[in-house]
Amino acid sequence: MSKETTAAPAKEKVPKEPLFSAKNKRLLYDPLNDNNPITVQVLGICSALAVTVKMKPAIVMALAVMVVCAFSNLIISLIRNIIPNRIRIIVQLTVVAAMVIIVDQFLKAFVFDVSKQLSVFVGLIITNCIIMGRLEAFAMANKPWPSFLDGIGNGLGYGIILVIVSIVRELLGSGALMGFQIIPESFYKMGYFNNSLIIMPPMALIIVGIIIWIQRSRNQKLIESK
C-alpha cells in the first residue's frame, strides 16, 4: 500500500467551532501542495494519467473524484461508530461503489460524450486509493464536517495535478485548450507541428515526474532521504 500521512484526530471538544476555522481551512489547502495526494502521498495515480489527454475529461474526472471523495468521507464519518472493525473495508467499498454508480449515471445522463471518453475510468474511482486512503486515515477518526472538507481538499489536490498535466498535453499535443484552438493557423504554415508523442500514455508519466521534480526543488522538506 502507499505510505500514508495520518492526520491527527481532532479530539478536543470545542463547543462551537466556526465552520471555516483555521484548522478546517488547512484541511482544504494542505492537499493542494504540502500534502498533495498524487505527488506526496502517492495515492490514486492509477486513474490520474489515462484521462489527461484532453482538458475536458480531466476536469470532469477531477470533479467526479472530488464529489465521490467528499460524500463517501461524509457518510463513513457519520456511521464510523457503528461499523464493525472487521468488515470495515467491505462497508467502505460498498459506500464508495454506491457513490460511483450515482456519479456514473449522472455523467451518462448529462455529459454522455465525456462519459464515453472516460470509459472504464469512472468505475475505477472505486479502487482509487485516494478515496480508500482518506476513508481509512481520516474519515474513520474524525467528525463529519472536517471529513467532508478533507474529501474536498484531497479531491482538489488530485484535480490540480490532473488539470496541469492535461493543459500541457492538450496544448503541446493538439494545440488547443478545452477544444478551442490556441496555436494560430499561421504557426502551422510556418512549419510548426503538434507533438504527437505527448498524446501517447508514456508522456503523462514523464510530465508527472517533472511536476514532482519542480515541486520538490521548491519545497525542500519533501525530498526523500537516500
Binding site: G209, W213, I223
Partner: peptide, 23 residues
Amino acid sequence: VPAPLRGLGITFILTGLMAIAFM
C-alpha cells in the same frame, strides 16, 4: 539522482521511458 527527483520522481520518469520502449 538529483535530490528532488530521488525516489518517486525518478520512478515516474523511468516508467515513462519503459512505456515508450513498450510502444
